[in-house]
């Protein structure tokens, strides 16, 4: 199993947001996590990536057989975990090229692979850009600076393509996207998908799942996964809305 989350509790500033969450992801799978706003979707994503201040009060996040709770974010990234941010931060003055070269080389150094030469690196960048239909000029700019919502999300997918992670958690990558950008993002995921890696796609809407077809859909509510099922669950949610889940839960 690639990822196994056991009875995870996460607090921010002493307030518990994730309240006993269980999740199992195998290599080769795509999972969708859906749910209303404020139920802990982003908190889960950031806890997996190791954001400071997201305190795991109990439970385990086992990735490739090792509990990663307490590991530095860069260590998790080097081990193959990638977070696609809901709100990618703007970093003026750091070009995407230098950012990715630094990241890739640190990851490769950690994995005892030779550092890429400048031309090898640029070749790889060209290849990934082509794959994702990303315009040339994007990578010459500072990270996310002045990017439109769509450009920011494409840039997240581009970084994912460059770093070739084993587990990608995409946090509401579809929010604020027009249909064209949505297609580019979906295409990225579908192209990068292999038998060895896995995707956890967090989304509020079913729309993205028309393009990225999940193997398993989970509903996150009040810090727990309250229901799991096939892709038809997403359609049911879209038709009936989240109130349907809330009602069922209060009845139970």
């Amino acid at each position: 199993m690639l990822l196994e989350i056991k009875d995870l509790h996460v607090s921010i500033d002493g307030k518990e947001i994730v309240k006993g969450l269980n999740l199992q992801v195998n290599a080769g799978e795509t999972h969708a996590i859906m749910g209303p706003n404020g139920t802990g979707k982003s908190t889960l994503a950031l806890a997996i990536a190791g954001r400071e201040g997201y305190e795991v009060t109990s439970g385990k996040i086992i990735y490739k057989g090792q509990d990663i709770v307490g590991m530095a974010p860069e260590e998790r990234a080097r081990a193959g975990i990638f977070l696609g941010f809901q709100y990618p931060v703007e970093i003026p003055g750091v070009s995407i090229t230098n950012f990715m070269r630094t990241a890739l080389n640190e990851i490769r150094e950690y994995r005892k692979l030779p550092v890429l030469s400048a031309s090898e690196f640029l070749g790889r960048m060209e290849e990934k850009k082509k794959l994702l239909e990303i315009q040339n000029k994007l990578t010459n700019r500072s990270v996310n600076e002045g990017f439109s919502g769509g450009e920011k999300k494409r840039n997240e997918i581009f970084q994912m393509a460059m770093l070739e992670p084993t587990l990608s958690v995409l946090d509401e990558t579809d929010s604020g996207l027009d249909i064209d950008s949505l297609k580019v993002v979906a295409k990225g995921v579908n192209t990068l998908k292999t038998k060895e890696n896995a995707f956890v796609v967090i989304t509020h809407y079913q729309r993205l799942l028309e393009y990225i077809v999940p193997d398993i859909v989970h509903v996150l509510y009040d810090g727990r996964i309250v229901r799991s099922g096939g892709k038809e669950l997403a359609i049911e949610l879209e038709n009936k809305g989240y109130d349907w889940i809330k009602k069922e839960l209060s009845r139970a």
């Binding site: 990638f82 941010f85 990851i107």
Partner: peptide, 8 residues
């Protein structure tokens, strides 16, 4: 955090 989450 953004930079570190990429392995830096």
């Amino acid at each position: 955090f953004y930079l570190r989450s990429r392995g830096i």
